[in-house]
């Protein structure tokens, strides 16, 4: 490939040069690669060690505990009992009630959050006045401590004390009103998070595309459903996935609002009661493992059914 045609005699010499230079390039490259690899592994090791030590090991330990009879009130009666704890849990109406309550709260609140979060996202994205003010105030519910917000709602609905409580009734003492208030508290707290994720998606929709759609005769409503929504579908799915998993773990709000009375316990709440209040580590651990498995199924379903890409699933691949 030189400018001057190569005489046949020189070709073997050329080949040798080619091999030599390739070897040099490869050697330098490998040395640099090895150094980079070493530095990379060194830099990630603390994070990896901590995450493994605090999650992986305890999870294995929890699985082990769940296969044992482990009741702190009867410490001398600990022994391996296979899946008895799971049988106990899965045949207990308390668990299934809690599971139903959790699923209900998760589905209803995720649906409302998506709708209201989208509205808030559009407001934050489109407002022509006071954009900073709107964005700042929308962050307040996100940033506020969940327990604090839960107390605010609890007091608001407490008989006599609260500004929202109807005269002469105590909504937090019966099932359906309690569930409603729990969902309200959950939605209030997490709309902003949802809205921010969706807003980031909205920002990626090219303005020209919407203009083109309106030139093509699409109304605002149609533009939203036929242009914006398909384009921000990845953002919607990621936001929904996060929120669903998060809602399924619901604990703080229920603990403060009802303490799980009137069957309003979530799965996290009943697990907590068995562990800390009941000191039955075997049963509690079995519940922990079941929650863990359910979370995995939800995540798997999202990724498989809807093709939600986990954030960072392609690190730097797109750049």
């Amino acid at each position: 490939m030189t400018a001057t045609p190569t005489p046949a005699a020189a070709e073997s010499a050329d080949l040798q040069i080619e091999e030599e230079t390739t070897a040099i390039a490869r050697k330098r490259h490998n040395e640099a690669k090895a150094a980079e690899r070493k530095l990379g592994l060194l830099l990630v090791s603390p994070a990896v060690v901590i995450m493994l030590a605090v999650t992986a090991y305890p999870v294995l330990y929890a699985i082990w505990l769940s296969l044992n009879k482990a009741d702190l009130r009867r410490p001398n009666d600990n022994h391996f009992i296979w899946f008895s704890n799971y049988v106990t849990v899965l045949s207990s109406p308390i668990w299934w009630t809690a599971f139903g309550v959790t699923a209900l709260i998760t589905v209803v609140s995720a649906a409302f959050e998506l709708a209201l979060g989208m509205i808030l996202a559009i407001i934050m994205h489109r407002t022509i006045v006071g954009r900073g003010l709107v964005r700042t105030s929308a962050l307040v519910p996100y940033a506020i401590v969940t327990v604090v917000a839960a107390f605010s709602w609890r007091f608001a609905w407490t008989q006599d004390l609260g500004w929202l409580a109807p005269k002469g009734s105590a909504p937090l003492t019966s099932f359906w009103p309690s569930i409603g208030i729990i969902i309200l508290a959950e939605i209030w707290k997490t709309i902003p998070f949802m809205a921010l994720l969706l807003m980031a998606g909205l920002a990626l929709v090219p303005e020209d595309l919407l203009k083109a759609a309106s030139m093509d005769g699409a109304s605002a409503w149609k533009r939203f459903w036929m242009v914006t929504v398909p384009l921000i579908k990845p953002a919607i799915l990621v936001a929904l996935l996060f929120r669903t998993l998060d809602a399924f773990r619901i604990f703080d709000n229920i603990f403060i609002l009802t303490s799980g009375s009137n069957n309003t316990s979530s799965v996290s709440m009943v697990t907590y009661s068995n562990l800390i209040r009941g000191l039955n580590l075997g049963i509690g651990s079995a519940m922990s493992v079941l929650i863990f498995i359910t979370t995995g199924i939800i995540a798997f379903a999202f990724i498989k059914l809807f093709g939600a890409a986990a954030p960072g699933a392609d690190p730097g691949g797109r750049r």
């Binding site: 080619e18 230079t21 040099i24 390039a25 490869r26 330098r28």
Partner: peptide
């Protein structure tokens, strides 16, 4: 001067 990449 020659520049060759490690893949040859």
């Amino acid at each position: 001067v020659v520049k060759r990449y490690p893949d040859g």
